[in-house]
Design a protein around this nucleic acid. Sequence first.
RNA 1: GCCCCGGUAGCUCAGUGGACAGAGCGUCGGCCUUCUAAGCCGGUGGUCGGAGGUUCGAAUCCUCCCCGGGGCGCCA
Length: 548
Amino acid sequence: MAIDPVAELRAAVAEAAGTLAGGEQRLPGLERPPKPDFGDYSTNAAMLLAPVMSEPPRGVAEKLGELLGERLAGVLERVEVAGPGFLNLFVSDEWLRSALAGMVAAEDGYGGGVASEAERVLVEFVSANPTGPVTVASGRHAAYGDSLARILDFAGHDVEREFYVNDYGSQMRRLGESIKARARGEEPPTDGYHGGYVTELAEKIDGAAESDVDELATQSATLILESVEATLERFRVHFDRFFSERSLHEADKLRAVLTLLEEKELAYPSEGAVWMRTTEYGDDKDRVLMRSNGEMTYFTADIAYHRDKLERGYDRAIDVLGADHHGHVTRMLAAWDLLGGEGGTLELPIMQIVSLMEGGQRVQMSKRGGEFVTLDELIDDIGVDAARFFLLQRSHDTALDLDLSLARDRSQDNPVYYLQYAHARIASILRKAGSEAVDAATAADLAGSAEHLHASACALLKRLLEWPAEVLEAADRRAPHRITVYLHVLAQDFTAFYRDVKVVGAAEEGGDEAFRIAMCVATRRVLARGLDLLGVEAPEEMHRDDAA
RNA sequence: GCCCCGGUAGCUCAGUGGACAGAGCGUCGGCCUUCUAAGCCGGUGGUCGGAGGUUCGAAUCCUCCCCGGGGCGCCA
């Protein structure tokens, strides 16, 4: 069981509420109130219970407070009824000290394993045509998908990362045609690919000018995929599997899908093509499975691909899609349903677009004409840490403006360095304390410490106590950006603690050095873990002089 | 026309039923004999797009409308 003192407190409140009202009740909330005056935690339990018990909320709060006071004698200093019926809880220093002890004992696992039910999850993301370099847009997908996978993994799920390679179809043909054209010193077709890499490939592949277009496409796709993979690895994104669309065609999996759909009477011929009745699943029109020229559409391949996913027996599949693919959602859910996938087990989060800004101006990154910013260029410019952090900072369903001048800035203005600096600062303190003192501190009886908690220490402890719930929220809501927000306030709280409380030499001000070292250790672990979930490094040292 | 995502401080955005709405950047003013000033403290700043509704309570849920972005192919 994951160590989470706040969850235990919440459970105690829920239990007391159950005792008062009898039976199952709406689960009461336990949250950090907006003002210190409102206690360390507050619960709306009384307001939820009031209608059930047909009593005024404040009266219920009084009773609940009394009951909690008895049951949690050592935990709660006092309780107060406030406002419309909130019950504000003031925890004891004793409870906070033992909470720290719990965190420290949990070591690197603190905050992990919080998922209520461990699932086998497949996260599919990026999944671009292997027709060119990774763009910044795909970079956002990569950062999101990978970070989500890291979070789900830490929360206790069994996660696989997969890249679906669209190495088949008309886009590939266009690539082949474009390369052949370049090899002959001609312009690629209007709807072909015009980037400089096309010319490079044309030069790299022997006899490209004379090659068969399809063969050329296959050959170059392999080369492009290698560089795509290299870029993603550089971005600290590692896929467990690259799943080839071509392999589905070669194994005749699309034909099998067609047969299956025909058996279920969900496929029908019309105008020389074969269609699927996606309208039966709420789509606004039926979709073509096989074109009148006998070729299968990407949709049929997608169905075959998802059939394969289902056969692999995951509990859940998450497909990260781009905003331009949102129209696919309904038909993919339809496909999932008819293939026997359980409702709600296929999720299709939609990534909104990313724009690069430079001094308030939008940077052109149109893919047409081959003038677009690649992920490699972005990394060269601002570094992996800043790139990942900035791409993750905003919710996936909001359009993102990435300010290059701010992201590039190796200065105090850059939020990613603020977090790394907090980590480096703790590392510095622990170095100064010495490894023996640190080892002793983590082994010490922290719960029994005589440390009198400074307000900043209380605030920091309570922030650290939010970590397990924060991981769970980020995992359940597929929201890595929440981690960036949390780490920022954590770093702020640590900085306040650093300002107000002396760690090394605590005895000089009557404090317990071991206890304070343990707080540093706990904070450092959460910061390091949080940064890791974002794919950002946690440096041991940072110096301003490093900046040019 | 239909579908998706936004509309919260000057800018970029957190905040999916709780108490007088937050952060970063910007701006103004202060702080380096200190466990790292890549830091800290203070000031400035908001009709939460609009109108109704649900609720003890709404930025948050529902309906309608306005504005911005994206999508609506026998391309992927």
